[in-house]
Amino acid sequence: MNSFFEYFTDIYRAVKSLLTGMKVTGRYFFSPWEIVTQQYPENRKTLKMYDRFKGEVIMPHNEHNEHRCTGCGICETACPNGTIEIIQAKIDMPDGKKKRIIDKHIYHLGMCTFCGLCIKACPSDALAWGQEFEHAVFDRSKLNKTLNQPGSSIIKDIVE
């Protein structure tokens, strides 16, 4: 008699536990306002990333096509992966001396691990995080970017 009773209690407990779980899924089924999915490619126009989002390393330029990079190379040594490559150029100053300036600030996006050490290390705040995150390209060489724009120059008040 006892085992007979246990048999039915077990069935009752099993069905009850399954129904408790079904209650949760059922509740979400009938409350569509609790759905949190984002329709990503469709909402691209309204999609706003957070301000601190680490998309890629960029070099901000002002309206006169001027940046803050002196080409000192501290970011190059701070980078753990050899992502940044700095090519310097020499120009003749009016007083006859030669001065080193930045020629190309090459950034290999494909090697970047987004640790932020270059931006932290930069003494003249020339680098910043960009918001762009759709980096997929068909050709790997497109991931090698030159951060200083062609024809750009350094802002006058930056002291080395």
């Binding site: 601190r52 989002f53 987004f114 932020g116 050490l117």
Partner: peptide, 24 residues
């Protein structure tokens, strides 16, 4: 995490001696 540290999974937020930046 993304709002404060900029990334979702691999943050690199701590540095020896402190934090990369203050919290949001």
């Amino acid at each position: 995490f993304e709002e404060s540290f900029g990334s979702r999974l691999l943050h690199s937020y701590y540095t020896p001696g402190g934090l990369m930046m203050d919290i949001h």
